[in-house]
């Protein structure tokens, strides 16, 4: 019940933001939300003790799926794009998951990285898709409804928010139950889990699939916000950014990924505007400070505040 109330508040807040905020803030919120959804998937995966350095693969698949719909088949409907992207992400994850679910630790991380880099290579080689330059996409309608220019992005943000909140609630429900405990058990000791008769492979596979579908959705949302896709979405630095946001927020909550993504975007924007020559250094120092002083992620701040209150 508490979670439902929190979800309702979060959604109301996001809708208010989508309707009232200036355009640049709507854009930032969309990007932060998109990354938050990807990181949510990563957090699900991290519950089983696995970190993927290749979520860019699904982020990119989602972005390109959305863009190709508008570019190749002239389907410029945002709802179709978002759903198709999540489906595409889930589908590819269902396929690659068969292989990857056997891997653990750093090998899981590196194999997922290798796969995303192979997709990167394929995209760079595709002259028809604009190679590294990428191409533009335009979404004009939502479930067939058309909106005035400038209004459409606000509608997309509301739609994205609704989906993200529903996804977060579902993940919350899933992890709060038997499945979540099973995932933690796989992380802690896989062998015992199999001795108890459960299949760690199945747990990892399903969580990987969820992470893939969410990353695909996030990719399409980001593509809708930016209006452009390019292979950089699948590059390892993009994947690394997701991992960083996950660690920044901490893995113990499902709101944390979204808050962390918003803070990350804000941090990067401020750093590159006020310190254009040393923005990488500023970002690095902020990262170190957070890891040193908030080792369990920013969310531990919330925990402490809640306990003292």
């Amino acid at each position: 019940m508490k979670a439902l109330a929190a979800a309702a508040v979060a959604l109301a807040l996001l809708i208010a933001l989508a309707l009232l905020a200036p355009q640049w803030l709507v854009f930032m919120a969309m990007l932060a939300l998109a990354k938050g959804v990807v990181v949510l998937g990563l957090v699900v995966l991290m519950r089983t003790g696995l970190v993927s350095f290749g979520q860019g693969l699904y982020f990119g698949i989602g972005a390109y799926a959305a863009a190709l719909l508008s570019h190749q088949w002239h389907i410029a409907d945002a709802a179709v794009m978002l759903l198709a992207a999540a489906a595409a992400g889930g589908l590819i994850a269902a396929l690659l998951g068969l292989l990857l679910a056997r891997y653990r630790d750093i090998f899981f991380a590196m194999l997922s990285l290798a796969l995303s880099m192979i997709l990167y290579g394929l995209l760079v080689k595709s002259a028809a898709l604009g190679s590294t330059d990428g191409f533009n996409l335009h979404a004009r309608t939502f479930f067939g409804m058309a909106f005035a220019s400038g209004m459409e992005r606000r509608v997309f943000l509301i739609a994205g928010s609704a989906c993200a909140v529903v996804a977060a609630l579902m993940v919350h429900r899933l992890l709060g139950r038997h499945w979540g405990r099973l995932a933690s058990a796989v992380r802690d000791n896989e062998l015992r889990v199999s001795y108890l008769g459960a299949s760690p492979y199945r747990v990892v596979y399903v969580n990987y699939l969820i992470a893939g579908a969410l990353a695909g959705f996030g990719g399409a949302l980001a593509a809708l916000a930016v209006g452009h896709v390019d292979p950089e979405t699948t590059y390892w630095t993009t994947s690394g950014e997701f991992v960083f946001i996950a660690i920044l927020g901490g893995t113990q909550s499902i709101i944390a990924p979204f808050v962390a993504a918003a803070i990350f975007e804000a941090l990067r924007t401020i750093a590159s505007q006020y310190a254009p020559n040393v923005w990488q250094m500023s970002l690095g120092l902020a990262m170190l400070a957070i890891i040193m002083f908030q080792p369990a992620g920013l969310w531990s701040l919330a925990e402490r505040w809640r306990r003292s209150a």
């Binding site: 020559n277 250094m281 970002l283 690095g284 990262m287 170190l288």
Partner: peptide
């Protein structure tokens, strides 16, 4: 993070 700092 160290890598980012060193780049600058």
């Amino acid at each position: 993070a160290v890598f980012l700092i060193m780049e600058d």
